[in-house]
Amino acid sequence: MRITCPLCGERDRREFYYKGAALVRPAEGADLDAWHEYVNLRENPAGPLDELWYHEMGCNSWLKVTRDTATHEILAVQLASEAGLGGEK
């Protein structure tokens, strides 16, 4: 499997660390249900999924990778810093 890092270019999967679904973090003061959903609940679709990958052995960028879990096709890669995952502040 190969992922195209927006900074480094196409790289082998071994350079990356996988973290799981890329979700928007609840705002400070959000209720426990929102946190429960953020921390524990996952969709697990057979299809496109936004995921977090860390280019650990490369440039150290966190990436939001949109990947089809059924075909393994990678549909989009974005720097996490530009993905608005921090939520409302």
């Binding site: 480094c8 350079e15 052995m57 490369g58 440039c59």
Partner: peptide, 10 residues
């Protein structure tokens, strides 16, 4: 230049 791994080493 490339930031990459060399046999498991950054």
């Amino acid at each position: 230049t490339a930031r990459t791994e060399l046999k498991h080493m950054m």
